[in-house]
Simulated scan of single mutants.
Amino acid sequence: MGAWGVGSFDNDAALDWLDTLDRLGAEALLIAFQTIAEEDERIETEQARIALAAAEAVAAARGHAAPDLPGELAEWTDAHGRTVDDALAAQAKDAVTRIRDRSELADLWEEQDSGPEWDASIAGLLERLGAGGD
């Protein structure tokens, strides 16, 4: 799947996942985070991209949206954001940390000399996930 930047929605997998979120609701968030939590090996790129999109949904639902949040995700969080609680935010933070520390996606950005930009993007997401609800 294509990617054009280090942002959480700068790739096809994350944008395609929005359809899953629309269909499954908060269950799509749980599935994304559980997939990361259950991975014993390096986390695959597509799994990481989906979980990062899910983490962005959590941050947005808690009032800390990224400036480049897709419109359809903003609409979803306005309508369903109340389903995102502290436990889900903790799962999101755990998933993002695991992706940062041991994923093919992190390796990919490092190999393409975009590591510092990607690291900053991930740090911003973690900060937004920790804001407010904890």
Rank of each mutant, 00 (worst) to 15 (best):
M1E: 06
G2E: 10
G2D: 12
G2I: 09
A3P: 00
W4A: 05
W4R: 02
G5T: 03
G7T: 10
G7D: 15
G7V: 02
F9R: 01
N11G: 07
D12P: 01
A13E: 15
A13Y: 07
A14V: 05
D16M: 04
L18S: 01
D19N: 11
D19C: 03
T20S: 15
T20F: 00
L21W: 02
R23V: 12
R23E: 15
L24W: 08
L24V: 04
G25L: 11
G25C: 11
G25E: 06
A26L: 08
E27W: 09
L29E: 05
L30D: 12
I31D: 12
I31W: 02
Q34F: 04
I36E: 00
I36C: 01
A37L: 06
E41G: 10
E41H: 13
E41A: 15
R42F: 06
R42Q: 13
R42V: 06
I43E: 02
E44F: 05
T45G: 09
Q47Y: 08
Q47V: 05
Q47P: 08
Q47H: 12
Q47A: 15
A48D: 01
A48M: 08
L52S: 03
A53V: 02
A54N: 07
A54H: 05
A55L: 08
A55W: 04
A55T: 04
A55C: 09
E56V: 01
E56S: 10
E56P: 01
A57V: 12
V58E: 05
A59S: 14
R62S: 12
H64I: 01
H64L: 01
H64E: 14
A65P: 03
D68P: 06
L69I: 12
P70F: 03
P70C: 07
G71Q: 09
G71H: 08
E72F: 00
E72Q: 09
W76E: 00
W76V: 02
T77E: 00
D78K: 07
A79C: 07
A79R: 14
H80L: 06
R82G: 07
V84I: 13
V84A: 04
V84R: 00
A87E: 13
L88T: 09
A89E: 09
A89W: 01
Q91H: 09
Q91L: 10
A92W: 13
A92I: 10
A92L: 11
K93I: 08
D94M: 08
D94Q: 10
A95Q: 02
A95V: 04
V96P: 03
V96Y: 04
R98H: 07
R100L: 10
R100T: 05
E104K: 12
E104A: 12
E104N: 11
L105H: 02
A106L: 07
D107W: 06
D107C: 05
L108W: 13
L108C: 10
E110D: 10
E111H: 10
Q112C: 06
Q112H: 13
D113P: 01
D113S: 13
S114R: 10
G115D: 04
P116I: 06
W118E: 05
D119F: 09
A120K: 09
S121V: 08
S121E: 15
I122S: 01
I122A: 06
A123E: 15
G124L: 02
L126H: 06
L126G: 11
E127C: 08
R128N: 15
L129R: 03
G130P: 04
A131E: 15
A131Q: 15
G132Y: 00
G132M: 09
G133A: 13
